[in-house]
Design a protein around this nucleic acid. Structure first.
Lengths: 498, 498
DNA sequence: TTCTAATGTAATCCC
DNA sequence: GGGATTACATTAGT
């Protein structure tokens, strides 16, 4: 199978004028290989040589004759940097195959004017990067659970008091709720990572970690893709602190923020995003951001670890938006049509000169390609904030307003918020037996109308009147509706476009 | 000869608090075997996933249950790193046997507290390493030939004009001289490597490649050895350019350089080192360095590919040093006595914490063990530089001066430099028919005295007066002296200590 | 500081 | 056992 060409041969062959990949020896190394460190030495023992006049001549001797000043090994260790063009191709390839065989590497090498060895190393490092990101993310996940627990326990539910400190867990609860006990602890998380490495592209699924790996290391399936730049999506460098409900750049609902680029994107305070069985949780400020762009008229979900991913779809494919809420906590279900065609996926493939992110459209990276099939995107978050954002959105997108439904559920349990928060997914999370639904439909008349979250007709319209912030709930029996029947379709109302 | 019982005295074994081997189960042997086979084949077939062929991540999901995932027993299977102690034993063993049988492996496993499997793998990887080094070195060799040829063709004889460009061979000669045609081209070099692998420890001599392999993979013969550290040998990082005859840090004879460590070692500008039939060529800046250490009063030849080797002997065993020169080119023959006992051999076995090289004395690694038998070490290099170094050496080592002879040969051919350079060895290289010898003995009076390079008496003394750089030649018939009679003893004057 | 190119080595897989 | 390749740890360069 493996044409396995020696791989240490020839290489550079055709004169590539890339200034990024300077003419280097087939063995990138000579210089390094030679053992970088051993030589260098440092010091220590010049003692016995004192006699000879030891003038410190830092290396090199470099003669006048310059003839061979770096006759070789003196290669100052050229560290070749992949050009943006090269990177684009590499990333693209990586999207469909994280471990190209020697044949493919060879092709890439020719195409990009890099050595096969460089290609191989690039992929190796790229895989390692994914792993590292997964590792880090896994740790964050674990922290998030504590954080979430804290939140559910009565502290700031959505915005941690500050940038989550990694070292001092002030509010370490005495015991974790059972939902979270099942989760991996950070200590055995790497075992899973390791294991996953062997099941490349099979992802037999498991914890969140597997999902994450999947997100970042897309399974090797070739699908059409195209590269384009979307400079309109600017993002803050690194982990930007979470938007706070106050500040100069904030307007409507305290949730309208200006991004760096000067472009404004509005967003929902999402703590989780769930599409079918695929789920993401917001752990830090920027790792899950659910925007809506009024100018572009699109929903844009940002998923970010170190590398960023996006899921987008236009307002126009939204069939319905339903918000169920319970006190502070809410869940917004957005039903779309034709997800296979309507939903687009992007991955970050670089940073442009102006600092904006270079996005490359890619195939569905969600576990099981749920996002290409599922009709419902569920966002959990602070109920009131969600409501406010929906209100704002409805006020601008007039044709969306009629598709919105806001209702409430109040569990009969002691600590509804907690249970709600701790449930792993939308399908099983929202409707434990014993919950009571208090659904309110918002009409222009501002008259709260309890509504069963059930089979709406496609053209049912509701508008939100934000002047009535407290369209609040009359209780309603919610426990036996069709809403929760299908684990993969938390909300089955509405037509299915398949 | 030497029964050389393994003698690796226990050392490490139980409970090593090495940070190298973290607290892990005695040995994760099982873990390796265990997961190994996960699912598909990884490498080969991940090549072309044609479009969409089956969603690679079908199942999975996560749900909430992600319970086990690595149920296989939380063996994290840490990657074990051999401790320095373990390495020492392994390397030592490797020196005498590169393929220990299972019995020996078992012993090693016990002694070192490693699994047999690990031992096996270590040796396998170690052998692979040798091969890779040979492969690389072979490529360099081939380049070297071009470089040497270029040099001999009339360009800078010793220092190639620049870093030999691998992509455009500017000075590719129309045809290689016959001496070099015998050399393997890089294309069939691997065939030779492969071939050589079967003749391990037989070293039928011949090409440079075989010699090289010999250096790096010593034949399985047990000889006494001892391990010691020679921290006084520091080396420059990477391939340092060869010393040039000028510069701020250079003093006597322009050849006294300071090494990084602040330690000074003086050296000869050697382009080749020949001991009997064994020969090394300087290709890159650091692969052949012939030092003399005044404080240690020793000659030290460094041979380096990836791994470093040394040949050393003390000044006191030097019977005579003869420099023959021809214009820019010269050859210095150092005659020693009792090479079997006087010459020591070392190989690099690691790097110490301070960055210095760990040297382990080893048996003679030269082809045919020439260095243990031959009395003459020949160094070819820039005549004037050699002369200057000898001058300097003589000025410090007063008892060496009287043993030095400097003479000159001028060939009657058109391109002496070239022929000199292209000769494979010292024995046949210096005295083609038709050469004319112009030997000058240097006396304090600075009077050039033509001298036949013949049977000097042991106590003949000459001093060098460097204030007379042009002790130049009167012609002298040189073609029928005894000097060139014995192929293995280019210079037969002086007593033979056998 | 982070990110990434590159190295060295332990380990795996396939022949 | 060899050969290729991978993961992993680590070093440097920017």
């Amino acid at each position: 199978m493996n044409t396995s060409k020696p791989e240490y041969t020839t290489t550079v062959k055709s004169t590539q004028p890339y200034n990024y990949t300077p003419p280097m020896p087939p063995y990138p190394d000579d210089s390094k290989a030679v053992d970088s460190e051993s030589f260098n030495t440092s010091s220590s023992n010049q003692s016995e040589y004192s006699r000879d006049g030891g003038r410190p001549l830092p290396s090199a001797i470099v003669g006048s004759s310059g003839s061979n000043s770096n006759a070789s090994g003196a290669t100052p260790k050229k560290r070749t940097r992949a050009t943006p063009e090269q990177l684009a191709v590499l990333e693209k390839t990586f999207m469909t195959n994280t471990s190209p065989n020697s044949r493919m590497r060879s092709n890439l090498a020719q195409e990009l004017g890099m050595t096969e060895r460089s290609i191989q190393i690039w992929f190796q490092n790229r895989r390692a990067k994914v792993k590292n990101m997964a590792k880090r993310a896994a740790i964050l996940q674990e922290e998030a659970m504590r954080a979430q627990f804290m939140a559910a326990s009565g502290y700031m539910p959505f915005y941690p008091p500050a940038y989550p400190s990694r070292q001092g867990h002030h509010y370490r609860p005495p015991v974790l709720p059972h939902h979270f006990r099942r989760a991996r602890s950070s200590s055995d998380v790497m075992g899973a990572v390791r294991e996953r490495a062997r099941m490349r592209a099979h992802s037999v699924g498991g914890g969140l970690l597997n999902q994450m790996q999947n997100d970042m290391m897309p399974p090797p399936t070739a699908t059409p893709w195209s590269s384009h730049f979307s400079p309109y999506h600017q993002q803050q460098p690194h982990y930007q602190p979470p938007p706070q409900p106050s500040g100069p750049e904030i307007d409507i609902a305290d949730r309208h923020v200006m991004l760096d680029s000067g472009m404004s994107l509005d967003f929902f305070p999402a703590s989780t995003l769930t599409i079918g069985t695929w789920k993401r949780m917001r752990i830090q400020s920027a790792d899950l951001l659910c925007h809506y762009s009024l100018p572009l008229r699109r929903m844009i979900w940002h998923i970010q670890e170190q590398q960023r991913f996006k899921i987008e779809f236009p307002f126009d494919v939204i069939d319905r938006i339903v918000l169920v809420q319970d006190g502070e906590l809410g869940r917004m279900d957005i039903q779309i049509r034709d997800p296979m065609n309507a939903v687009e996926f992007y991955m970050e493939t670089g940073t442009l000169a102006d600092g904006s992110i270079q996005w490359t459209q890619c195939r569905d990276f969600t576990e099981g390609r749920e996002a290409s099939q599922q009709l419902i995107h569920s966002i959990e978050g602070h109920a009131m904030e969600l409501s406010k954002q929906l209100t704002r959105l409805a006020s601008v997108e007039l044709n969306l307003g009629p598709r919105m439904i806001i209702d409430s559920i109040i569990p009969v349990m002691d600590d509804p918020a907690r249970d709600m928060f701790l449930t792993p997914g939308p399908s099983s999370s929202m409707e434990p037996e014993g919950y009571v639904d208090t659904t309110s439909t918002l009409s222009p008349s501002t008259t709260p109308t309890p509504t069963l979250v059930g089979p709406y007709s496609h053209d049912m319209a509701y508008t939100i009147d934000k002047s009535h912030p407290s369209n609040l709930p009359t209780t309603w029996d919610y426990s036996n509706t069709s809403v929760v029947q299908d684990a993969h379709m938390p909300f089955t109302y509405g037509p299915h476009y398949t």
